[in-house]
């Protein structure tokens, strides 16, 4: 059941900043409300006392095929409107929202919009809204990732401009969002120097699926044991095509290269 409105749905909610109403996505939910307490030691032997006609049907379908199809539809929409869409992924707290806040302030001459993904709260949408950029918050409830269908619903509400940039902040999670194509142009994985430099080795699926790797919080390098070169080395072993940016979203150091890369892609 939805805690907010008690409507009996436990699906994803979509809320525009500044609006009191939220609504639920159509039947595409990832709730985990099943019982984990029961015994799994059942046997798979079935007693076929009367005659049974079993039959095998070839299916040959990609399990994520529906999501991939919807992602392709999103991609087509972005292309038609010349929207540059970025999917930002990281562990919780690596600095996705801070980077967005700083980026949006610097990019005020470019029409932008933001889709925020979190399990709960409007906090990140509120922070982004303070920059004046249109933002929509998706609360996934128990869901650990955004999917292509949520993005489709979200941009329908945001009324994206032509020749603009769309930032999607995924749920803070270095595992699950790796599997779900949203239709973005580039996937950006963010790692901060307060995390282990071997994160790319520990979570290779995410680094394999990314195009860009941002190493954030470099202002803290003097205080932590984090070897940037070693981190890059790990990441390149997983994905030799990764492009890197080293920056501090807080102090602004290194932001220039990131911003000019963005502008180059907006043409």
């Amino acid at each position: 059941m939805c805690d907010t409105c008690g409507c009996g749905s436990n699906s994803t909610t979509f809320t525009k900043h500044g609006e009191k109403e939220h609504h639920h996505g159509d039947g595409h939910h990832h709730d985990h409300d099943h019982d984990h307490g029961h015994n799994h030691d059942h046997s798979h032997e079935h007693d076929h006392s009367t005659h049974t006609h079993g039959r095998t049907i070839e299916v040959e379908q990609d399990v994520l095929g529906e999501n991939n199809l919807l992602a392709q539809r999103n991609r087509g929409y972005f292309e038609a409107k010349n929207i540059f869409a970025l999917n930002l992924v990281s562990s919780p707290g690596s600095g996705k929202t801070t980077l967005l806040e700083k980026t949006l302030v610097e990019l005020q001459d470019v029409p932008s919009a933001v889709i925020e993904g979190d399990q709960q709260t409007m906090n990140d949408a509120d922070r982004v809204a303070a920059t004046g950029v249109p933002v929509l918050q998706i609360n996934t409830g128990n869901g650990c990732h955004l999917d292509a269908n949520m993005i489709h619903t979200a941009y329908g509400e945001l009324e994206l401009k032509n020749d603009s940039v769309l930032f999607i902040e995924n749920v803070g999670n270095l595992v699950c969002p790796a599997l779900f194509d949203l239709g973005e142009n580039k996937r950006v994985v963010i790692i901060s120097v307060t995390e282990g430099e071997d994160k790319p080795a520990k979570y290779p699926t995410m680094f394999d699926a990314a195009d860009i790797c941002i190493i954030n919080k470099i202002d803290l390098l003097p205080y932590v044991e984090f070897d940037v070169a070693r981190c890059k080395e790990h990441a390149l072993k997983v994905n030799h095509q990764l492009e890197f940016f080293e920056l501090s979203a807080t102090t602004g150091e290194g932001m220039d290269t990131w911003l000019s890369w963005l502008r180059d892609n907006l043409k």
Partner: peptide, 27 residues
């Protein structure tokens, strides 16, 4: 070299299903 392309191993494919047909009993 690490410059490799993964050609197999990322699959997540539903190959086939076995169904029971009408008239059968599955106890």
């Amino acid at each position: 070299t690490y410059e490799i392309e993964i050609i197999q191993g990322k699959e997540l494919r539903l190959k086939a299903i076995s169904i029971n047909e009408e008239g059968s009993s599955h106890v």
